[in-house]
Computed example of a mutant assay.
Amino acid sequence: MPALVTAIAASALLAACGGDDATTAPVTPPAAAPLANQLYTQTNESANAIVHFTRQSNGMLVRAESTPTGGTGTNAVGASGATAPDSLASQHSVILSADAKMLFTVNGGDDSISALSIDQTTGALTLLKKSAATAGHMPNSLAYNNGILYATFLSGAHALAAYKVGVDGSLALMAAYDLNSVAGVAGAAPTQAIVTPDGGSLVVSAGTASGAVLSFPINADGSLGTPVANTGLTAPFAAAFLPQKTNPIYLSTSASQGSLTEFTDAAGLLNSVSTASTTASAPGVAAPCWLVLSPDGTIAFVGNGSGAISTYSISPTSGLSLLNATAVTEPGVKSGVTSVAADSWVSPDGKFLYTAYLGDDKVVAYSIGLNGSLAKLGETVIGTSTGISIQGLAGI
C-alpha cells in the first residue's frame, strides 16, 4: 500500500507541473530567434559580389561565402575616370531591408541595383534580381522604407529615383528626380540618402560641392514631394539621425571643414545648434566623411579619408564635443594610397564597431569601451584585384 500511495502522489505532482501527457495540451514550439550576427560588404569589382561574414560573441569576424550580384562594379574607377579608393563617393551603397530579409547593393559599373534574399538561419545570400539600367548613372547610395527603395546617382539627368520593390526583388521605377529642376541644385553628385526616424521624409546630401541637403516629404505611395532645400552648408557628405522619432536631431559631416555638425530638423528645415571639429587638434586627420552612431545615440564615430576614426560625444544638453580625433588609425598598405576609414557599422548591443578600409582592402573589427574608446580585435583582407575597390558595409 505505501508504494501505491507514493506512486499516486508522484503522479499528482507530475500533473501539477504540466507533465501529465493525458491532460496536457500540446506545447507550441518557440518561435525562431531573429537572424543576428551577420555583416556584409561589396567587392565592387568588375564581377561584383557581396562578401558575407558571421560575427562571433567576442566581436571577431569569420568570413563566409561570396555571392555574385549579377552586376558590374566600378573596379575602383570613379565618375571622373580616376582610379582611387571610394570610387562611389558615398555612404550606404549596401543596405538591408528593415526586416533583414533582403540586401540591396548598387552596381556602379553598369548602372544597376541588385536585390538578394538573406537566409534567416545562416545569413547566406541568394541573388533575386538585378535591375535593368537605372534612372541615373553610377548609383551610389540606397535607402529603404515601407517597400520603396530610393537610390542616388553620381551623374546623369536624374540624381535620385524611387523604386517599388517586388516580393521577387524586382524594382519598378516610380519616379526619377532632377535635383536642379526640383530643388535648384545644379551639378548635384549626391553622397547619401537617409530616411527620417519616423519614415516621413527622405534626406539627401546633394554632394560636397553643392553645399546642399534636401529633405523630401514621402507621399503615401512612397513617391517624393517638393523638397525643402538647405543650402550654404560646407561640403556635407554623410549624415545620421539620433534614434528618436520626436524632435529629430540630424548630424552631418563636413568633408573639407573637418567637423561634425548637429542640426534640429523642423519639417525638413535644418538649423545648426552645435559643431565640433578635429582639424585644430589632430594633424594628419583629414576628410571626415563617413558617420555612424552608437545605438543609444551618445557617441558618433566619424571615418576619415586619411585613415583615422574620430569619436564625438553627443549630449542632449551641451551638444557635440570631440572625444578623440584619432581614436584609431590604420596605415595605408599601398604606396601613395591612404587606408580610407569609410562605411562603419555598430553592433546592436553597442559593443563592437566594424569599419571598411577602402584603401587597404579590408574590414576591421573593434571593441567599443568607455567614452567610445576603440580597441582593435582583428582584420579581414577581402582580396580584390585592385586592392582598393571595396565599398559599403551593413550588418544585423
Rank of each mutant, 00 (worst) to 15 (best):
G303I: 15
S315M: 05
L233V: 05
G166S: 10
S205D: 11
P197T: 07
G383C: 02
G108W: 03
T72S: 15
S155T: 14
G123E: 06
N304K: 09
G81I: 03
A22E: 12
A135H: 02
A49V: 07
V77T: 15
G392W: 04
G258Q: 04
C289E: 12
G184I: 09
G232R: 08
G392C: 10
V302G: 00
T386V: 13
A124D: 10
P295Y: 08
G211L: 11
L322S: 10
F53L: 11
D168M: 14
T264F: 03
T121W: 00
A161E: 00
S181L: 05
P197A: 01
L88D: 11
L224D: 08
A135G: 01
S347P: 06
S210M: 08
T226F: 09
W345L: 08
C289R: 11
V5N: 10
T28S: 12
S57M: 10
A22C: 06
I50C: 03
S117Q: 04
A276G: 06
S210F: 02
G303C: 05
C289K: 09
P139Q: 02
S66H: 06
Y366M: 05
A209P: 01
D265L: 08
E262C: 01
L4F: 14
V346D: 00
C17P: 00
P26N: 04
A282S: 15
G336H: 08
V340M: 15
V328S: 09
A115V: 13
I118G: 02
L214P: 02
L173E: 13
T226Q: 14
M1K: 13
S57K: 13
P139R: 04
Q42P: 12
S66I: 09
Y40S: 10
T380Y: 13
T105K: 09
S11C: 11
A161C: 03
T231W: 03
